[in-house]
Design a protein around this nucleic acid. Sequence first.
DNA 1: CTGAAAGCGCTAACAA
DNA 2: TTGTTAGCGCTTTCAG
Lengths: 349, 349
Amino acid sequence: MSAERSVTIKDVAAHAAVSVATVSAVMNENKYVSPELAQRVRASIAALGYKRNNFARGLKTQVSHSIGLVIPDIMNPFYTNIARGVEDVTHTHNYSLIIGNTDEDPEKEKKYLHLLDSKQADGLIIAVTDHSFEYLQELPLQNLALVGIDRSLIELGIDTVLVNNTVGTRTAIEHLIGLGHRRIGLVTGARGITPTEERLVGYTEALEKHGIAVDPALIATARARVDGGERGAHQLLTLEDRPTALFLMDGTMVIGAMRAIAQLGLRCPEEIALICFDDFAWAPVMRPHLTVVDQPTYEIGKQAAHLLFERLQHQERAPREVRLQTRFIVRESCGSHLRSPDALSRFHA
Amino acid sequence: MSAERSVTIKDVAAHAAVSVATVSAVMNENKYVSPELAQRVRASIAALGYKRNNFARGLKTQVSHSIGLVIPDIMNPFYTNIARGVEDVTHTHNYSLIIGNTDEDPEKEKKYLHLLDSKQADGLIIAVTDHSFEYLQELPLQNLALVGIDRSLIELGIDTVLVNNTVGTRTAIEHLIGLGHRRIGLVTGARGITPTEERLVGYTEALEKHGIAVDPALIATARARVDGGERGAHQLLTLEDRPTALFLMDGTMVIGAMRAIAQLGLRCPEEIALICFDDFAWAPVMRPHLTVVDQPTYEIGKQAAHLLFERLQHQERAPREVRLQTRFIVRESCGSHLRSPDALSRFHA
DNA sequence: CTGAAAGCGCTAACAA
DNA sequence: TTGTTAGCGCTTTCAG
């Protein structure tokens, strides 16, 4: 069973009665070809249903017209949106997008990096699992353009796009403080990665600005998944002196937190206020409607892809770090509307 | 700026003082090579940091070790999970996964098909946008193994994996009927695609079985997105003789439906019962907790990928259609717990 | 303006 | 058991 010999550039040349060089020239539009010939060639291509072989092309040019996206988990809505953003611009460039989930496992990450490298991907957008800085540098990925997302890689001279985590967090925490909260619990994801550390800074800054001491007991570290959020929230909510508000670092964790709250028979926001990073379609349809620090996820992906294609053109351009703004969306879970009719009406507007 | 000439198999051969054929043989393990030589070759590979050029390899072998996944939208959790399932098995095969979103646009779909074809993807998993049957056949995709998901392609001799839509829907509708509902509204996605049509059959069967006439006014067709769900639900709920229950065909639409319900000031499930296809992490954290027809989405992706890799091995195997079972999960939005303490306790168990 | 021909790096006959 | 070599299909000088 062998598929019939697929049609090659030679066949097209023969059919159009020109040389292969001419066929190549019309396809690449990089040489003058008389209109008549060009026309004949195009007709032959259509007639034969010819499609250029990407292997042969790549072998010659060393470009694959594909880029990779390496992220922890596509099922996390944060990354899903990013992926969509990346994919949309990739598509407009007629490139293809290869996706790899690392599950925050450095080994898996390394494997993907090598896989994409051997596939001769032209570039890579990556949310590194931890500050694997040296590791990334050591990798023999010389020909691979890189763009980091979510975790800053600018110190490595790698283009990066992320959000202003510090400000986003500080704003939310100050809002809570303004509502009278003094014991504010924080459930973080993995330590050491940019978003966690920067948000921790925002948290600390907000507290200190208002003369509130940071209580380490109020900071739980957990897996950035539903179960992690549940565990982290549970841990904090079963403290003798439990917090009156909780800040979750991601949109999956907050689902776990709500489970923990329900399980402990607490009422949100009356007994425990709740704010989290990431907005999503169902946030407004949860009870209570979630107050969130929204990240422009789709835009992150888009910008990262733009940066990547830019670098593909201009290898030598200086590395850039793009900081996108978060948006604080007050709904109900922070308890604003309990004290301030204003906030509530703003939401319902 | 030219990256230094990358090391080739020739360099390795020279370094190890053997022929290129030997180097190739040890890498592919398809020929006997004496342990000493093999050792030497491996050492040279490591020493030189040699990585096989995928273009050259593919040009020769015509296999790319990559497959494509063409879906309407990765942001729909249904497809997100499928993608993850596909990706996981792709990864174990050391293949890479190329993703394309069609947005249900046949042109975009066609473009992706061609892109993947020209990239010489070894196979493709696809959720076709509509019954583009002839279209798919006409495509000169001879060398591309295909697997359909969600939409049945078995009549085209293409492996397919989907769920038992008819049974899933019938069960849910009968549950509603058992609860006393007689006017049950249906918000469908695009007509003509397998899931829509099969669920329509399930709906009809359930009604007819209980001697209830199908009222066309109770069936709304809409875009399978949040906004479509909202519009469709709104349309049905503003009928003079509005339904007492709503069945939504997908997990994004139901969010829209809940918005419509809230906007119309209706209480769910007291005034309007609600059931939808697809379960998701946040379904249990919505108020009311959503009663759903769960689809094993991750498993669909996994099975589809398995089918694809199987076909890659055995081109001639007869096409198969895999039907996975849905699971009816009673929570609160159907109103069961209002009438039946049993159902409620079952949920809380 | 068009064509001939030399590889790109690898695999797999075929020889030795 | 190992090596020689002919392409895979395309791009791109370089001649004409």
